[in-house]
Computed example of a mutant assay.
Amino acid sequence: MASGDGLLLRVRPPLARMTRDQALGLCELAQSLGSGMIDLTHRANLQLRGVRPEDHDAVVEALCRLGLVDVDATHEAWPAVLVAPCWQAGDDTQRIASALLARLGELPALPSKFGFAVDAGPAPVLTEASADIRIERARSGGLIVRADGAAAGHLVPRDDVAEAVAMALAMAVWFAATAGSVAPPSRRMRGLQQVCAVPRGDAPLDTAAPSAALPRPGMSQLGPVYGVAFGQIAATALGHLLQDSGAVALRLTSQRGLILEGGEWRESTAFITVADDPLLRVDACPGAPACASATVATRALALSLARQLLTDSPEAPRSLHVSGCAKGCARSGAADLTLVGRSGTFDLVRNGRAGDAPAQTGLSPENLRLCIGAP
């Protein structure tokens, strides 16, 4: 898609993992044919920024050689499959996700943001991530297939991987057949759940196991974990970190984190290295001038407000979203404070999303600080 700084190209690494060579190749590509910046999204996707239209074909060809996009362009329109990042080869998450990816071509047309989450480890870690159909570990220890927004999911007979995939695909087919029949038509499973119940069939129900946290900055069982402020990565910094750490692969998380698989810890000023850094609770889109839809700069303001507002005080807000426009691309969920650019000024939304009704409108950055109690 076109943006204010050139074309934006999405890359969806299978199982949210790239080998060392793939990751370094992506960094080189971002520097040679892009702006040198890479975005990491809440769906564990990457986006190359600043690609010139005349270089589009060359970038796609290079990504195909790296094995990071499918040579069949129609496959890139298939639903996203988000995976719990700490999967191990041969475990349920890896086997289910691989089998699901192989069968996505069987599905009818679905909305562009429709997707699956495969979260079959000991405890679900993707409960806050955007997905429409979830394959999770059940409270009873088995597997469930759960529609987003539903309190319980359908138990998978015998925990069979093929059956889990078949149930998830059947649920997606039901969505495609049903979503257009409600008014207004629904584009996400959660919205459809409010008016229609997913057919249960003969499968008994169970709730998901208590959730756990995604890996945060520090050392994990797979290797060092780094946070990415606002999801914006300098390709040069990532390349240096990969090489210095000796990592064999790079994994992405839905909370804009990087896991350097098999690597050693290296200090870095380019990434978040502290687990309780307030920047982990801030979302901000690229803003103006990088995005043509934005009328305000976002990230400098978000950076300054994060240090001033997101403190340990019980009265302090726990989350902040600075959006260049009402689309709210950087955060789909609600935040304690959401600042929305409109005609060069900011609207203030409390405990809501970018598209919600604001409590105050037309605020300059200075007036905005006074309203939210920032120095």
Rank of each mutant, 00 (worst) to 15 (best):
H56L: 12
C285G: 06
P289F: 13
A152I: 01
V225P: 06
R190F: 06
A294D: 08
T236D: 13
A294Y: 08
R266T: 03
G341I: 12
G262V: 10
G246F: 04
A151P: 03
A131E: 07
G25S: 01
A44L: 05
M171K: 08
D206T: 03
T127R: 13
D55I: 09
C325P: 05
A97T: 00
G257C: 04
A147V: 07
S268A: 09
G239E: 12
A123L: 00
V59T: 09
V296R: 11
P365R: 09
D276L: 09
R20P: 07
G227M: 12
R43D: 11
G153D: 08
P79S: 05
L214Q: 07
S130M: 14
L241R: 14
L46S: 12
A168S: 11
R216D: 01
D72L: 07
G341V: 10
F230I: 03
L66Y: 08
Q31N: 03
A359S: 13
A150D: 15
E366Y: 03
R216W: 09
A99T: 08
M37A: 15
D92A: 15
A330G: 13
D70L: 07
R134C: 05
T361K: 07
L100D: 12
A197N: 06
R188D: 14
S332W: 13
L339G: 10
A208Q: 10
S181T: 15
T295S: 15
T298E: 07
L8V: 15
L279N: 00
L337T: 02
H42M: 10
M171L: 15
P14W: 04
D55T: 03
G105F: 02
V198Y: 05
L9A: 07
R139H: 06
L241T: 08
I135K: 04
T361G: 00
A292N: 11
P184H: 04
L250N: 07
